[in-house]
Amino acid sequence: MNEAARIPVAQPAPLLSVRNLRTWFHTFGGVVKAVDGVSFDVAPGEILGLVGESGGGKSMVGFSIMGLIDPPGRIEAGEIVFEGEDLARLDEARMRRVRGKRVAMIFQDPMTALNPLYTIGNQLEEMLKLHTDLPSARRRERAIEMLREVGIPQPESRLDNYPHQFSGGMRQRVVIAISMIARPRLLIADEPTTALDVTIQAQLLRLMKHQVTQNAASLILITHDLAAVSQMADRIVVLYCGRIVEKGRAADVIERPRHHYTRGLLDSIPHHDKAQARLRQIPGSVPDIRKLPPGCAFAPRCPAAQDICRRVEPELVETATGQAAACHFPIEAIR
């Protein structure tokens, strides 16, 4: 039903279209439905924020797109259509030509994201060797150019430095340079600033945004930090226990959340301009994903939960503005 209620504005064909993705892990303790029926689109040039608490399945969405789900995990169902090609059905050899060249991914910890034994020039050029046919002299030039773009001073000499000679923030810049050097169409950033000092988080997010827009690429920003996403993203998808609980345009979701979970996340961000005695928190913790309650997974923690919430799983219902929430009793816009 939500398909029929799409916004009546003509949209460009999406770069990436994830349809009903299910990534399950078959463990001794039961089936972990890390991603359970997730659908979303990423338009060309768009920045999508994928938000949720840890253990919410956010990272597994990223790994599913990259085709890097290790046993006992498996993509059970769904499509991952990227530039007209279903990545979930590509074999390993063809998938390798997608990774790094068309879709790149970066991770949380800049301290271990670079191989300590090779110079950063070496690691930048490895990507070019793998995905382009530039001659070696041109590769070096391109690597220097790329380091300059991500704001590393004296790139010519820094190229021959080893990762331990860089600070955390600088390393993450190098990681961004490596990921963007083959000019991918889509960058997946999995908690890219979580391990960094607050003072440089904003710088790096801005750098990433700049890199992506400059290359006309799209970005999926996976994070638990709604504040970061609200400044960056065009649209937001909120995940809870492997399912989408809310999605929509960033401004809508941030200013008028419809799901109580999104509201809870927003309330737990400190605001320096509001005199708040105590920060509100979401009561309870993320349930064991192997033993989810039958109805809405958020019901045990939800302030508005009724009987039906504990029995029937709510569907994702889309409003006229394109905002969708999976809730029996969504928060209605008051403003």
Binding site: L68, R99, G100, D109, L117, V175
Partner: peptide
């Protein structure tokens, strides 16, 4: 994460093992 990074950059497993795991 540098091994994960090598995987997401499209390097074949044999190369990841020889170039990235073995020396470490």
């Amino acid at each position: 994460e540098y091994i994960q990074a090598a995987r997401v950059s499209g390097l074949p497993n044999a190369k990841i093992i020889l170039r990235h795991v073995l020396p470490n």
